[in-house]
């Protein structure tokens, strides 16, 4: 019997991951006004990189069956390196799918299409390399072996990994917010988000800020993928796509371009999903999109978004 506390904590844990994905969208949206549809694929990539860095082996349907890295890193290092790897590929996506269109001054709609293409290529390359099968993370190798399987909290048994997941995503979200708020480069990013032309006139290298946004956004997606892989499993290369799509719903729910909106939206979405009774679990995947439609009809600017005014 799952207690309410367990349900809420599970919801908050997956909500934290949704917030990571939505923040990734938000960073890029605020500086460029576009959505990076490759975000879900970077999420998958982060999961697989974490798996390999923890010493996991490629399954029988992969390109190199039985191959694995000859190392088994502690989980925190694996997560960090996997996030950096996803961030690097995020930069590559920017170079191929966004930069040429931006330089040409093409309509922003086109970058939706190219980033979708980048995501499709990435996910299918992952599938060629790793096979379509699901992967469970190597037990013990995760460096978590010395931690207890579950904790007793307020009379409820809670999986340690869920607590860890919530803590890590909260840490990532908090440090990102602090960085945006206080640091010099964070302020530069907010300036570019406000007005790229003025920011450039003030001596901010806005191209560098854009690249930084793609790096951070890719890292957030990769971290989310690694965390979900550790706490649940990798359900095939497409598993990140569904998180990417739900992240979009969270983005609209919180308000496009709003950092606190992405965080609140993620938590609301995670809790709403966790509260769906198990008899109706088949419908759980549709909930995010039902919420998305409701927001578009009732309040298109989202929970915490600003109403967009247009200059003509």
């Amino acid at each position: 019997m799952e207690t309410l506390l367990q349900t809420l904590l599970n919801g908050a844990a997956s909500g934290g991951v949704y917030a990571l994905v939505a923040l990734g969208y938000t960073l890029i949206f605020s500086v460029l006004g576009v959505i990076n549809f490759a975000q879900g694929a970077l999420f998958s990539l982060g999961g697989y990189l974490t798996y390999l860095l923890l010493g996991g082996k490629i399954g029988v349907n992969g390109a190199l069956p039985g191959w694995g890295l000859p190392i088994g890193l502690p989980f925190w290092l694996a997560l960090l390196l996997a996030a950096l790897g996803s961030g690097a590929i995020g930069l590559l996506v920017e170079r191929i799918a966004f930069a040429p269109l931006r330089r040409r001054g093409a309509e922003p709609l086109l970058s939706l299409i190219t980033s979708l293409g980048a995501g499709v290529v990435l996910v299918n390359l992952l599938q060629l390399l790793m096979g379509a099968e699901g992967y469970a993370f190597p037990q013990g190798a995760a460096g978590l072996a010395h931690l207890p399987e579950s904790l007793l909290l307020g009379g409820a048994r809670i999986r340690t990994i869920q607590v860890l997941l919530l803590a890590i995503s909260a840490l990532a979200v908090a440090s990102l917010s602090l960085w945006l708020d206080k640091s010099r480069s964070g302020k530069a990013m907010r300036a570019v988000a406000e007005d790229p032309t003025t920011a450039t006139l003030l001596g901010i290298n806005s191209e560098a800020v854009v690249r930084l946004a793609f790096l951070l956004s890719g890292m957030l997606a990769g971290l989310g993928g690694g965390l979900i892989g550790m706490s649940v499993s990798l359900a095939g290369p497409y598993f990140g796509i569904s998180y990417g799509l739900k992240g979009l719903a969270v983005l609209v729910l919180g308000g496009l371009g709003s950092v606190p909106g992405a965080i609140v939206g993620g938590l609301v979405m995670g809790l709403a999903e966790a509260l769906i009774p198990s008899q109706a679990s088949g419908w759980r995947d549709a909930l995010a999109f039902a919420i998305l439609f409701a927001v578009l009809v009732l309040r298109p600017s989202g929970l915490l978004g600003r109403r967009q005014l247009e200059k003509v």
Partner: peptide
């Protein structure tokens, strides 16, 4: 009707959502 009042990327996002809702509905 609700989505096309808005400009820009909302239609792309909402139609992705529609694909998922229809798929889940047919499955369930």
């Amino acid at each position: 009707l609700p989505v096309l009042r808005l400009r820009g990327i909302y239609l792309a996002i909402a139609t992705i959502a529609l694909v998922e809702i229809v798929r889940v509905a047919i499955l369930n």
